[in-house]
Design a protein around this nucleic acid. Structure first.
Lengths: 159, 159
DNA sequence: TTATTATTGACGAATATTGACCTTAACTTT
DNA sequence: AAAGTTAAGGTCAATATTCGTCAATAATAA
């Protein structure tokens, strides 16, 4: 357990929580020294963890006084959330995508574990019907998945 | 007879009971070594036993420090409850039945308003697909409704 | 016997880590 | 002001470590 990446991820999250601002400025070099890794490891953490999909945007500057700034988006308004969902889901999603999206939403406390379970079961049932009973193509199934998921999430985001 | 699958299933269940958390992190490789089987056997156990329909959510990550995390949402699933669900829902339900059942469950505080919403939206979507896209008979649609509803409620161990 | 469930293994995909080399911005020196 | 120097951060590819999928086969149950 405890991979370097996760440790650094947690560290940045803590900094964000502690900050009164909604963003933090990081020094790639200092972070790398602190955690005893190569600087590009920090890029990896940022690239893989602090993505728009997870509700972050990142700015940076090279050269003297360079920095990496991590900004946490706040999606207070229902409308902003709804738009975010549209983007998140897109036109087709497979079951793996669904699991990822749901884990993400639960982690951000936008849905509960029980709600997540309900959505997974509904999606699986639809997949089963589409595959075994109706013999739909994988593409058709994935686009039905996307439609179902968007409706379910929309109903929550706006309700 | 104690098939390997059952042994591993029991092992994971024990880990879950012993854990103070509601989840455990497993290493597929280590489990496979411990029980002297191929790693993919673990996938089989997970896929066939720890399903959302049974109240479990599974997350996993590949690569270095990878894991399989099993989350248990429902501590127990008494037979009485399961039977009750069967009775409550039966073999076919129309949308009106569904609304009535859900209202009842919400009134008894067994589901939240949001959960009710999810179930209704899922049912309506299925109805729409079955009617407009697949041209299923009303009877067929109602029996699919019943199956979906039972699975959703069972996953929450309600009834 | 037939259908379902379990076991295995070959192959593929995802994630993490590291390091060499590239780009950019600020500072310093002519 | 221009050129050079220094101090950041960025990119990409190689490698290692896990886990997932799928199809073939075996075992068990109906």
């Amino acid at each position: 357990m405890a991979s370097l990446t996760r440790i650094i991820e947690k560290h940045i999250e803590e900094l964000l929580e502690r900050a009164s601002e909604e963003s933090v400025f990081l020094s790639r070099k200092d972070l790398a020294e602190r955690f005893g890794c190569v600087p590009s490891q920090i890029n990896y953490v940022i690239r893989s963890r602090f993505t728009p999909e997870r509700g972050y945007i990142v700015e940076s500057q090279r050269g003297g006084h360079g920095y990496i700034r991590v900004i946490r988006l706040c999606l207070d308004m229902p409308e902003a959330r709804a738009n975010h969902i549209e983007e998140l889901v897109g036109d087709t999603v497979n079951e793996q995508d669904i699991r990822r999206i749901l884990a993400n939403l639960q982690h951000r406390q936008l849905i509960t574990a029980r709600e997540r379970l309900l959505i997974e079961v509904a999606a699986r049932f639809q997949e089963e019907i589409g595959r075994d009973l109706l013999d739909l193509s994988p593409y058709k199934r994935d686009s039905l998945h996307a439609e179902l998921l968007k409706r379910l999430l929309r109903s929550l985001a706006l309700g």
